[in-house]
């Protein structure tokens, strides 16, 4: 049952504002979009999306005879709606994403889910394909990208029902995408990056080398950024059994120095890996994240 206390994933206000923008793709994606996208495959049919080996029952008119001449095998063309953008929305649903620093705020997972759902809507509206990969240690759920409107509901439902738990291992999502996204796609990663693996960004860089366009939405709670603890506190890990007792006043300075340094490293590593990076505070309005992102997209698409 979806958690009724959770916020609706699609913030109508955000959607209303985004309705005036068009989502643009920075690099050439596979597929051709009518009137808006540039396809990396020159001369390809706008309708044609991919091949599938002929199986009885497939329509004869969809057999690609050129492919037959080439490969001496029957292949059937699969057609999409007019889109060339395939986006994978990778949402980190590990235990750490379940944190909220203030009861009035969204958890990081809720925030990430709202962002992902908003973007999915935009993509689907533009007849772009949006898929979902939910990571909880490993990939717990994957919804292949589709451009259909009813596909959006699948994504939303998946996000809404997911509870934050388990360790953070984004490399499993990277592996899954590498395996399941043969063509260039846009990978939108929503995570706090509290990964046990230190080289998670290098792992993400693999996607870039495969021509995927990766955008890293670094979702953090303001409490993680500002560390507003003054009293003796027993900090409990949200992914394993570790706990540490510390006086907030005593460790604040060191914590903030480490946090700042880490974020800078993430930003730098992301830049080095040619990953688009956006810091997302869960107390910031969604449009503050989406609009700059979309604006960048428009500029790069132009």
């Amino acid at each position: 049952m979806p958690d009724t206390t959770r916020r609706p994933l699609l913030d109508p206000a955000v959607i209303a504002r985004l309705a005036t923008l068009k989502l643009r793709v920075r690099a050439i994606t596979e597929g051709i979009l009518t009137g808006l996208h540039k396809s990396p495959h020159h001369g390809a049919s706008v309708e044609f999306a991919e091949h599938k080996e002929y199986a009885p029952g497939d329509e004869i008119r969809h057999i690609d005879w050129k492919a037959y001449g080439k490969f001496d095998k029957y292949y059937v063309k699969k057609f999409e709606q007019e889109t060339n953008l395939r986006a994978y929305l990778v949402v980190d649903a590990s235990g750490s994403m379940g944190y909220r620093g203030d009861p009035a705020r969204m958890t990081k997972l809720e925030y990430a889910s709202a962002l992902a759902a908003s973007l999915a809507y935009l993509l689907v509206r533009q007849q772009d394909a949006a898929g979902l990969v939910l990571v909880q240690g490993d990939v717990r759920q994957a919804i292949p990208p589709r451009a259909a409107a009813n596909h959006l509901r699948l994504i939303v439902d998946a996000l809404e029902t997911r509870q934050a738990e388990g360790p953070t291992r984004l490399s499993s999502a990277v592996d899954w995408i590498i395996e399941h996204a043969p063509r260039r796609a846009s990978v939108l990663l929503f995570s706090d990056l509290f990964d046990a693996e230190d080289r998670v960004l290098k792992k993400l860089a693999q996607l870039g080398r495969r021509k995927h366009e990766v955008t890293l939405f670094h979702v953090l709670d303001p409490a993680e950024l500002e560390f507003p603890f003054d009293d003796p506190t027993l900090f409990l890990s949200m992914e394993d059994g570790r706990q540490v007792e510390a006086h907030g006043r005593d460790v604040r300075k060191g914590y903030l120095e480490l946090m700042t340094r880490w974020r800078e490293e993430v930003r730098r590593a992301a830049a080095e890996a040619d990953l688009d990076y956006a810091l997302c505070r869960t107390d910031a309005p969604l449009e503050d994240v989406l609009l700059p992102f979309l604006a960048r997209r428009n500029r790069s698409a132009a």
């Binding site: 750490s96 944190y99 509290f194 993680e224 603890f229 900090f235 949200m238 540490v244 460790v251 914590y255």
Partner: peptide, 19 residues
Amino acid sequence: PRPTPFPAIDFVLRARRET
């Protein structure tokens, strides 16, 4: 001390260790 779930516990650990 008040028990508080906190995701960035690694940072707390390292900060405490250093200070």
